[in-house]
Every structure is written in C-alpha cells, then in structure tokens.
Amino acid sequence: MAQRTNSLAEKLDREALLKMYRQLVLIRRFEERCAQQYSLQKIAGFCHLYNGQEAVAVGVEAAMRPDDYLVTAYRDHGQVLARGTPPGPVMAELFGKATGVAKGKGGSMHLYDIPRNMYGGWGIVGAQIPLALGMAYASKYKGEDRVTVCLFGEAAVNQGAFHEALNMAALWKVPAVFICENNRYGMGTPITVSSAVTDVYKRASAYDIPGVWCDGMDTLHTYEVVYEAVERARRGEGPTLIEARTYRFRGHSMSDPGTYRTREEVEEERKKDPIPKLRAFILSKKRAKEEELDQIHEEVEKEVEEAIRFADESPWPEPSELYTDVYVDPIWPEKVHA
C-alpha cells in the first residue's frame, strides 16, 4: 500500500523547511563539485554520486532524532552531509587526506561520523542490513529508545543478507526501519531484469511487517512516511520496510556513462527534481521569500568551495598511519613488516 500524505509536512516550521532545503542544495552542489574534482583526479577510486536521490537522505534525516542511528551503503555522501557532518572533512576524506572523516583510510564508500550517529558507509551490497539488525538489536538489548534506519539500494533486496536480517528483525521486533532507495538500476541492470517482484515494498509481506512506498523524489513525502515508521519502531512495534522510489541523475559511479538508459528517460526524471519541488512548496506556503532561498544557494556555493580548499590544503596521512587502527590493541611488532 502507498501511504498517503498526511498533515505532518504542513506542520513543519520555517526553520525546519529551510534546513531541509539547505541540505538538498548542499548535497547537490557537493556532488556536482565531486564530479569536477574527480575529473581533476583529486578524488580517486569508486565514487558513487547521489544527484537526484537527495530527497531520500534529507527526508529521512528530518524524520529521525539526532540520536537515532543511520547506516547505509557506498552511495553515502548525501547521508553523511544530511546528518550534519561539515563538508570539509567529507571532501578531505574523498581526497584521501589526514583531515578526512576516516583519516583518509575509508574514502568515498566508507564515510562515518559516530558522534552524529552516522555508522557508514559499507561497500558490499546488502551487508549493512544485518549490521543494522545488530545495531537495532543492541538498542533493544540496552533498553534505549533509539531507532536504527538502514538504507540500501533495490539491488540489495535480492541478497540473502536482506532476507535473513528482515526475518530476524521481524521475529525479534527490533527498532529498525529498512529503507530501500529504489533508483531502478543495480549498476546497469534494470530492476525488471533482476527482480521477480519489482514493487520492493511488497517483500515486507514475507515477514508480516508493514511495507509502504514513498515518493523518493519528494522530500516531504519521504519525511512523512519515514517519520511514521521511525515512531512505530520507537514505540516497540517493530520494523517497517519502505520503498523510496527515486532516480539517480548520473551514472552508477563516475566510470559509468549510463548508456543503458535513454536520454528521454533521464530527462523525464529530471523534471521531478526534488529541489524545485521543495522550493515551490516553501514559496507556496509563504515560509520564505525567493531571495532567502537564493541566498541559501549562494551560501552553499561558498561552503562547498571552502570544503574543497580545506581538502586541498590538508596534509596527506603520515606514513606511520599505515599500521594504526588495524586493532584496538596492536598485535604485531614493527619488525615483522621490515
């Protein structure tokens, strides 16, 4: 079933709406500049951009408490920025610098901000789903009222990890919300080619938990649907599976020209861009003026420019960092590596 918009979004105050708008713009602009920095070879390796899907990260963040836990896959720039991590250390991580969120050891796919309850950033499709189960299990075990929100792509629901984790999550009623960001393509393979059931939310029925979808191109609709699920989990009523129907405007990663999609399809989806959508809502409700929103764009432009400068000017990790953080208690004497 599709959960319909209720009045939750109407109740959002000016401050909350402007925060969401700023987050959308920040993620978009950050990703555009990432693409540019990638072509300049400042960013290396795999780099999966979030353009088009911003409404999901921002809607989810609005629905969560700051002390709730978030975990996602490797397309994670948007989520870490939505959690409030400053763009400078995020860009520095992508540059592989010592000032990065993981000291340059993780890179694009492994972004963490534990004080802000962002738990990564995981590179194996679907592997973060059992991890989220464990995070939520730990909350229940400790008697916390904190909810774990787990994001994954639609390709991950064909992994055994998804089914094993959802079964246990439902069985033990852990406080988790599983959100599938259905952008319709697992790398270059359309969901119609990979999945017998293309309505991802229907898979919830196998575990007798609520399955709902939301418009993942609409920040406020995403917020409303996720909020209901998060609060349900917080009340101890168990997990929900949400299918956020979204679209990535760019390729799977920076090395993907996206030839498996037609230009018309991408153009059609670009018309659903979440940024103008939220802008129109804010203006129609008279929560802010055009100039105020324009100013956000200008501020974000500077903020991202500053992040690039910070990353550029930051030092590389010291050679001595190579062997740190393997263990809490280092096990090998230095001589072994000589």
Binding site: L131, L133, M135, Y137, A138, S139, G160, A161, A165, M168
Partner: peptide, 12 residues
C-alpha cells in the same frame, strides 16, 4: 544474518 547481527551489536 546472525553473525552480522553480532558484528553490528559489537559495533554498538
């Protein structure tokens, strides 16, 4: 699934 649960719980 349950080893992953343990890994996640240990992480917390």
């Amino acid at each position: 699934g349950f080893v992953g649960l343990g890994v996640g719980a240990a992480m917390m």
